[in-house]
Design a protein around this nucleic acid. Sequence first.
DNA 1: TAGTTACGTAAGTCGTGACTTACCGTGCTC
DNA 2: GAGCACGGTAAGTCACGACTTACGTAACTA
Lengths: 105, 105
Amino acid sequence: MTYRAPIEALGDPMRRAILERLVAGPRSVGDIASELPVSRPAVSQHLRVLKEANLVTERREGTRRLYRLDPNGLAEVRTYFDDFWARALAEFKQAAEHNETKGEA
Amino acid sequence: MTYRAPIEALGDPMRRAILERLVAGPRSVGDIASELPVSRPAVSQHLRVLKEANLVTERREGTRRLYRLDPNGLAEVRTYFDDFWARALAEFKQAAEHNETKGEA
DNA sequence: TAGTTACGTAAGTCGTGACTTACCGTGCTC
DNA sequence: GAGCACGGTAAGTCACGACTTACGTAACTA
């Protein structure tokens, strides 16, 4: 299973809609598809992408497959963004102080 | 300027590369483009998208335009993701407790 | 075993978006 | 004012990805 960056998987609105429906607990493919304006195969393909990004895991149960959120992908996004946020914040503060010194606000 | 969801703007690798180069402070378009494997107009177009997502702001300085990170878009992504993370975490805990009760691990 | 349910996958279509080059406007500089 | 840097925009190309339908497969059920 080829890796895929979680943050890129999150770029698609339909995939975010799918993830939203998994946040309350595991769901089957057809169950999810019934709430979305796309076909079941489309949902299935999205779930594969989400799986490649470690954003969901799959568990077979009889003839159904239950998908649920995977903390790994979520943590990866959180780490990336927290780091980015921290660095950006540092720059903002520095810029603000610099402007104060120059009396620009 | 039509709005655009920040998290969708973050989906593109080149745009993330651009943001990475803005994290240390304001930069001009040509300056950014010189470090990236794409043309200057391409960078310009990406910056427009980022601006529509409130991820960057623009300040004119002579003939140049200095772009810098915009806290608004960043905060929006952070809010969205923090909320999502919190809900997911709650579900994980609940599932873990449920499994303990059932002795499944 | 035959039928049904639930999914995944293959194959093909179609729109979109990430590029390119060419061009135009704007603001310094000599 | 002429020339030059800087960058936004237009127009066109091209690949990719988000869909669809059709089909194949695995697992319950009667």
